[in-house]
Design a protein around this nucleic acid. Structure first.
Lengths: 193, 193
DNA sequence: GCGAGATCGTACCGATCGGTTCGATCCGCG
DNA sequence: CGCGGATCGAACCGATCGGTACGATCTCGC
């Protein structure tokens, strides 16, 4: 997946193209599982180009993770918004989004969690924490709309189900992970109001 | 934490001592976050000794993870056994064990999940999968004793709560993670019979 | 006390790491 | 056309990687 070659020389566009192309490679190989040289070769760019745009391999990594977190968060919010006003439907939408990612042939677990487990530099861990906070916001919002007695508690429990479903899907097979987690989530929802 | 120096020259004992000493270092620094040279310096052994006992850095890693999985699984089984016959009490024991690890000052997430996220060699991922299977066995056993309509489903949902609690404790703070997960687990338990 | 084997410390190996530099090329703008 | 900046490709840097080799030292069993 080389960066488009004949494209107009436009720094912003080049940067975005590098980001897009680097994302799946870093995800599949692991942040430290591929060197800058091989990475650039795969992207079809020179090392100098990469370093001018991102300064550091870490800079690229952070940019990739930030973009990924933004994209996932946005798609989750859209799915919830499209699910209508019923909290149960919104939960179903959430887990459907996740099941979709579990079923991707190249699924290798949550990119943010993997990154935090690999890369021990603080800024990356902070990105992961922020990512979970975003999930928590979404889930707590559903809990509030459901009239839960303790929406923050329920939100955190739902977050546990989401993350647990991802872990189980990663290491124990993706089949029905989203559905099983959803059923548990609906049970919690029903019991919390 | 150097390996005991004046100890009798006993290969088996040396091997075990290396294993014990290497475990926390590899956990804190990450499997690939520390080189063999620095690792040996920390353990107070020479590289030749390490390579004679484990053949490869990967060999050491596998041995460390295997021992850790065995130890954790055993302590979990003991806690469940000591909790008496009530499934609810057994669940409480399970999450109490996990909360104890969350509260350790050096807690950095589940060692097996971290390993799988870092080290993409197949054998390590297999160890992680086996580790989750052991958890699943324990939890499914509790679900069966509770008379759940679908104990395998409930077992998997409990596994999601356990792993989700670990993830949340890792990235969102350990406070009450075990307790919140336990309350969710008890709700599922009550609804499943 | 002697030999076998475990261990140490250190030097060394080729490979790869992240990052820099430089000359050549190519493109868009004036 | 010509200039400036983006890009390339390749060489290069010091550091570190996992792993090996070797001579010296130590401890045990005989």
């Amino acid at each position: 997946m080389p960066v488009a070659k004949g494209s107009t020389i436009d720094p912003d566009r080049t940067r975005a193209a590098i980001l897009d192309a680097a994302t799946p490679v870093l995800y599949e190989r692991g942040l430290d599982g591929i060197g800058v040289a091989e990475l650039c070769a795969r992207l079809g760019i020179s090392k100098e180009t990469l370093y001018r745009h991102f300064g550091t391999k870490d800079g690229l990594v952070r940019a990739v993770l930030e973009a990924r977190s933004d994209r996932v968060t946005r798609s989750l919010a859209e799915a919830v918004a499209a699910a209508g006003p019923e909290p149960a439907d919104q939960l179903a939408a959430v887990f459907a989004v996740f099941q979709q990612t579990y079923d991707e042939p190249r699924f290798r677990g949550c990119a943010m969690l993997n990154a935090a487990a690999q890369h021990h530099v603080e800024p990356v861990r902070a990105l992961t924490a922020r990512h979970l906070d975003r999930y928590l916001d979404t889930l707590t919002g559903i809990a509030e709309r459901a009239g839960a007695a303790d929406p923050r508690l329920l939100g955190r429990q739902l977050l546990m189900l989401v993350e647990g479903a991802t872990v189980v899907a990663t290491h124990h097979g993706p089949a029905d992970a989203g559905d099983h987690a959803l059923r548990a989530a609906l049970t919690l929802l029903a019991a919390a109001s």
